[in-house]
């Protein structure tokens, strides 16, 4: 069985080297719908892909969180991006692959991936 000893080692290793992050107003929130409808259509791997990518690419000021049913079950998995001072962007029918594209092009690059948004689908 894995023990908590390793966690102590991580803590010691990171002591001093990490500026403890706090939630600030400049933070972009990436929200994944994780109600029954979202999970049934594959939201969990999308959420995992997003949080893994944000962590591994070391993107600052982005918090990946989950929410309940957004009310558009037919478009699940849904990912919403709330950037401070900007209009909310709603991505629909997401997959882990599309999510990684959103990370690279939108969260890092700053450009909305228009083809995956709800607006593009409705047309």
């Amino acid at each position: 069985m894995k023990s908590l000893e390793e966690l102590k080692a991580i803590r010691e290793k990171m002591q001093g080297s990490v500026a403890f992050r706090s939630e600030d107003t400049n933070q972009t929130r990436v929200v994944v719908g994780m109600a029954t409808c979202g999970i049934a259509s594959g939201a969990r791997p999308v959420l995992t892909a997003l949080s893994d990518a944000v962590q591994s690419k070391g993107i600052k000021d982005v918090a990946v969180t989950q929410t309940g049913c957004i009310g558009l079950c037919q478009y699940e998995p849904i990912v919403e991006v709330y950037a401070p001072g900007k209009e909310k962007v709603t991505y629909v029918k997401m997959t882990p692959e599309k999510a990684l594209e959103v990370v690279d092009r939108h969260l890092i690059g700053g450009n909305v991936v228009t083809e995956y948004t709800i607006g593009a689908l409705a047309k």
Partner: peptide, 19 residues
């Protein structure tokens, strides 16, 4: 228990999260 060991370190820190 984990929080006690980590002090203020977040569970979202990549090392902690993957642990």
């Amino acid at each position: 228990q984990m929080r006690e060991i980590l002090g203020g370190l977040s569970f979202k820190e990549p090392e902690v999260s993957s642990y």
